[in-house]
């Protein structure tokens, strides 16, 4: 999941709008109980995802993950659902079928369990898709800027920015160290072998990161870094943001009201 360099409606929204939207969806995920409302929520998030016009491969990967997760949760919830009332669809092992049936209390597939599993999946997918929308439509530094202007301390923001910036080089380095070990004849066999390789990977990786951290600190010093600084980019809330936030809030209350009023 990476930032998409595009100019869509979602890209043009202020990062804070998207963070707030995240909170709203989180509330709805907890509050909504009915299948139809939850489905509506999922469908709205899906539309936002569609606005990004993601690559086919991304959509495909998402789809596979979702279908797998959906099938697994439905089946596992179907078998282990324990709330009454519950309707048996099939019984695989009846409670009075000897020893196994006795200790397991019987194994049956329950209709309510399957529905419950589907609902849980809808909740999960709504959260997942929305995080994808936020990450894919917001440049990382702007997301941080948004969080900072919503009260996150600046120094923490800087630390996160720099850490994100160094992730690619850290991964490269780890890869080279593992390769160097192989070239010296180390054969990695089984889980224990992996643990030992990992254990040997850490000292050079950590020591080199510390050396690097020192170099970075000096480079920051000569660039006058003290924590207090002018922010070149300032976030502006445009009418677009207000409209979008207004509509989303209205939508949120509508969904909750529907659930409370409609039977």
């Amino acid at each position: 999941m990476k930032y998409l360099d595009k100019e869509t409606f979602m890209h043009r929204l202020d990062p804070r709008t998207k963070i707030l939207l995240g909170f709203m969806v989180a509330i709805l995920i907890v509050v909504l109980k009915n299948p139809s409302e939850l489905f509506l929520l999922f469908f709205s998030v899906l539309i936002l995802f569609g606005i990004l016009r993601p690559a086919k491969s991304t959509v495909k990967a998402m789809f596979i993950i979702m279908i797998t997760a959906l099938v697994f949760t439905m089946i596992s919830q179907g078998f282990f659902y324990s709330l009454e009332p519950r309707t048996i669809i099939v019984t695989i092992l009846s409670p009075d079928s000897g020893f196994l049936g006795n200790i397991t209390g019987g194994i049956s597939l329950y209709r309510e369990g399957i529905i419950y599993g589907a609902l849980q999946s809808l909740r999960l997918f709504s959260a997942m898709l929305l995080s994808a929308v936020i990450v894919m439509s917001t440049y990382p530094s702007e997301l941080l800027l948004g969080m900072e202007s919503m009260g996150m301390p600046k120094r923490i923001g800087f630390v996160i920015t720099v850490s994100i910036r160094f992730i690619p080089s850290l991964l490269d380095e780890a890869r080279r160290i593992l390769l160097a070990q192989r070239l010296r004849g180390l054969k990695v066999k089984g889980i224990i072998g992996w643990f030992r390789a990992f254990y040997r990977l850490l000292p050079p990786l950590i020591i080199d990161s510390l050396r690097n951290a020192r170099r970075i600190a000096l480079a920051a010093e000569v660039r006058a870094f003290t924590g207090e600084r002018t922010k070149l980019k300032e976030l502006t809330f445009s009418p677009r943001d207000w409209t979008f936030l207004g509509l989303s809030t209205a939508g949120m209350f509508m969904l909750i009201l529907c659930q409370e009023i409609l039977p």
Binding site: Y139, P140, S141, T161, V162, I216, A219, A220
Partner: peptide, 12 residues
């Protein structure tokens, strides 16, 4: 300094 890698702070 010598190592350009450790003198770059931003992503863009």
């Amino acid at each position: 300094f010598q190592n350009p890698e450790s003198q770059i702070f931003m992503m863009r």
